[in-house]
Simulated scan of single mutants.
Amino acid sequence: MIPRLPRNIYKTLDLLLLQSFTRFNQISYSKKPQEVRILQYTHTFIHSAYYYPTSKSLGDNAVALVTTMNKRTVWNILDHKINLIGTNQSTKITRQASLSTEHRSFERCDYLLITAQSNMIDNMEKLEIEAKGVLVEIPIKRPIYFAPKPVVFCVSPQFAAEQWQTFLVQLHVSKRYGAHLHLYIVSMVESYFKLIKEYEKLGLVSIEPWLTIKFPITDGPYLEPNRNVELRNQAAAHTDCLLMYKESASFVGILDMDDILIPTANSYYEEFEREYAGDWLISALHYDKYDYKTIKVADLKSQSLSSIVKNAERLPTKDTGKSFLRPERFNST
């Protein structure tokens, strides 16, 4: 997904997509704003909450929440009020969070990715959210301050995944050009998961368990969230990854498993630095994506990266491209 804000310069390059033969229809959205009906009570799902003792872009003692919210909560979802309470050993403070999104509500599904951000208290030990006088504690995570590599690729959540051939191509190409893979997993076949775990032991891959949205009640007037969120809520996982590596990675890429980027330089880092050319007005590089088909093998011993590339055939179709960000310039995707 292409980040929409801030309104800075985007450079466009090329990206390779290796695919199987399953195709999906592209969804078209109307450009005319549609009226959003307001409901009295709606759902919010909190995916993760990060606490930054120090941050280059968010400030000291910053808190960032990754949430999925129903846009019908209020007329303008960004006007919704969320109170956060931070506690350390001696003090408790309350702050109102500012909400932001990279999505336009009239073009999207009912549930949107919303980030909530505020600056809290030194040495915060507990974070709570308040609604109508009820406090709920939120588990907090710390960002990674030392990334395995300067370039991190955030790979979309894997659902019932079984295409281990694509994973091996992505892994070895990314390793060759200097990127670390951070994978979000909902479900996959056991043998595939065991294979990924072996590469995790080598430090080439990080695995992040990822939960689908679940509410105790999804009857009317509510909507079943997983059927009313765009692309199975990939943006939430991408945003979680961006916030995780915000303070440590030089560049963060937003990819699907079958998005294969082969740079023209010796490494991803070298190419991205060249294309940014030290211009801080450029917040992201956007790569166009072209479809290819190739031959896959049935067993691990027969897997050959060179044969996959040699047998790749470009298709006449072109898919939505991908972006590679400076993490300090974005808080969500």
Score class of each variant (00 low, 15 high):
residue 63 V to K: 12
residue 142 R to E: 12
residue 256 D to E: 07
residue 179 A to E: 14
residue 61 N to I: 11
residue 306 S to K: 14
residue 232 R to G: 03
residue 150 P to D: 03
residue 226 N to C: 14
residue 89 Q to T: 08
residue 301 K to T: 04
residue 283 S to A: 13
residue 201 K to R: 10
residue 327 P to N: 05
residue 318 K to W: 01
residue 315 L to R: 08
residue 233 N to L: 09
residue 246 K to P: 10
residue 309 V to M: 15
residue 276 Y to T: 02
residue 138 I to W: 04
residue 98 S to V: 15
residue 25 N to G: 02
residue 97 A to D: 09
residue 188 M to L: 10
residue 326 R to W: 12
residue 249 A to E: 01
residue 239 T to R: 11
residue 33 P to E: 13
residue 132 K to C: 13
residue 6 P to K: 14
residue 144 I to T: 13
residue 124 M to H: 15
residue 92 K to C: 06
residue 56 K to Q: 13
residue 261 L to R: 00
residue 150 P to Q: 04
residue 222 Y to R: 04
residue 259 D to F: 08
residue 318 K to T: 07
residue 237 A to Y: 11
residue 275 E to K: 08
residue 109 C to M: 09
residue 226 N to Y: 07
residue 233 N to T: 01
residue 263 P to C: 12
residue 46 I to A: 05
residue 322 K to A: 09
residue 300 L to Q: 03
residue 313 E to T: 13
residue 74 V to F: 03
residue 256 D to H: 06
residue 132 K to R: 15
residue 260 I to W: 08
residue 203 G to C: 06
residue 258 D to N: 11
residue 112 L to A: 13
residue 130 E to P: 04
residue 168 L to K: 09
residue 180 H to T: 09
residue 258 D to G: 05
residue 137 E to L: 03
residue 170 Q to P: 00
residue 231 L to I: 12
residue 232 R to E: 03
residue 3 P to D: 12
residue 156 S to K: 05
residue 122 D to C: 06
residue 117 Q to N: 15
residue 42 T to M: 02
residue 293 K to F: 10
residue 61 N to H: 15
residue 333 T to S: 07
residue 294 T to H: 09
residue 156 S to E: 04
residue 287 Y to N: 06
residue 59 G to D: 12
residue 219 D to Q: 09
residue 6 P to W: 14
residue 269 Y to H: 05
residue 140 I to K: 01
residue 322 K to E: 14
residue 140 I to D: 08
residue 271 E to A: 03
residue 212 T to I: 05
residue 300 L to F: 10
residue 289 K to I: 09
residue 268 Y to E: 11
